[in-house]
Design a protein around this nucleic acid. Sequence first.
DNA 1: GCGTTTGCCTAAATGTCTTAGGCACATGCA
DNA 2: TGCATGTGCCTAAGACATTTAGGCAAACGC
Lengths: 190, 190
Amino acid sequence: MVRAGLTPERLTRAGAELADEVGFDQVTVSELARRFDVKVASLYSHLKNSQDLRTRIALLALEELADRAADALAGRAGKDALTALANVYRDYAREHPGRYAAAQFRLGPEAAAGSAGVRHAQMTRALLRGYDLTEPDQTHAVRLLGSVFHGYVSLEMGGGFSHSAPDTQETWSRILDALDTLLRNWPPTP
Amino acid sequence: MVRAGLTPERLTRAGAELADEVGFDQVTVSELARRFDVKVASLYSHLKNSQDLRTRIALLALEELADRAADALAGRAGKDALTALANVYRDYAREHPGRYAAAQFRLGPEAAAGSAGVRHAQMTRALLRGYDLTEPDQTHAVRLLGSVFHGYVSLEMGGGFSHSAPDTQETWSRILDALDTLLRNWPPTP
DNA sequence: GCGTTTGCCTAAATGTCTTAGGCACATGCA
DNA sequence: TGCATGTGCCTAAGACATTTAGGCAAACGC
C-alpha cells in the first residue's frame, strides 16, 4: 500500500484549491479525501476536525493576501499606494473566490491572534502615512478603507452590482478617486 | 394526533429566529423540526428543501430591512437621512445577526428579481437626491454607500475592530461625517 | 535485522438531507 | 349525518458527512 504523503500543509493547499472551485462552505473533509484517493478517516491524523481544516485555509488565505499587499505597497505612496492595495484585494477575490471567502472566516480568538490580520492593519496604516492624518482619525480611516474594500468586493462577487450600468470597473476607479480625495481632505472633528 | 399547523410562513419566521440564535449557516431543517416537535420529513410538504428554507429567510430579512429603511428615511434628507439609513443597517445587524447574514445570502437570479433588493437600491438613490450628484456619479455613490455600510457592519460583527481603541461608535460617526463631506464634494471625473 | 513509530486502513456511531409511501384527521358535498 | 376526498404528519429507508476507536503494515532508527 503506497502512502499518500498527507501533511497538514498539503491538505490545506488542496483545501484552498477546492474552495476556489466549489466555494468555501462546500469544502468538505470527504471531498478532500476523495481528491487524495484516501479514506476519510485518514485525514484525521493530520487535521483535528473539519473546523480545523477551514481555519487552516483561512490562515493560508490571510497570509497570501498579506504577502501580495506587502509586495504591492513596496515603493509606492499616496494614491498610487491606495490603488495598488485596493486592487490586491479585488484581484485576489476574483482569482481566488474561495480563499477570499475563507479570509473572511470567523476565526477563534487564538487563531486570530496568530493570523496575518495584524499585518493587514499595519499595511493600511503604512499607506495612510502618505496622507496627513493623526490619531484617532488614522484609525477611523483604517476602518473605513477596510470597510470599503471588503464591502465592495463582497457585493461585487455576490452579484450585487451585476445587472446595471455603468460597469463595475468604472465605479471602482471612481470610488478610489473619491477615497483619495476624502483622505486628502479629511473633515475635522465637529 | 394534533396537527402542528405548519406553514411556509411560520417555518420561515422560526427559521429566522433560529438564525439569530445559532447563526445563519447553522440553520438546519432538522433543528427546525425539533422546535416544532415534528418529524423532519414533515417539513418537506411546506419547503422544497434546505436551500428553499434559506432563501425564504433571506427574502424575509431583505423585506424587514427595506421596511425599516423606508421608515427611517421618511421625512429626512441630507446627512440626517444618511445617518438614519446607515443606522438601520447597523442596528438590524446587531439585533438580528442571523437575519443580516441571511440578507447577504447569494440568491438565485429568480429569487433576486423578486426580492426587496431593488427597494434598497431605490432608497439609497432617494437619499442621494439630497446631494448634488448626476449620473453616472450617482450610481457610483450608491455602490460606495452600499459597500461602506455592508463592509463596516460585516467587519464590526466579525470582530474585525474588536481589540482596539477608539471604540467603534466613534469610528462609525466619523465615517458618516466623512461620507457626508465626500458626497457634498464629489470629485469631478478626471 | 529488529523494534518502534507513523500512516493509512476498517468498522461503527451519529447526524443531516431527501424521497416514497401510508394512515388519520379535517373538510366538502350529498 | 354520512361518506369521499384531500391534506398533514407519520414511518421507513437511502445517501452522504463527521468523528472516534482500534488494527495492520510499511518506514525509520539503531
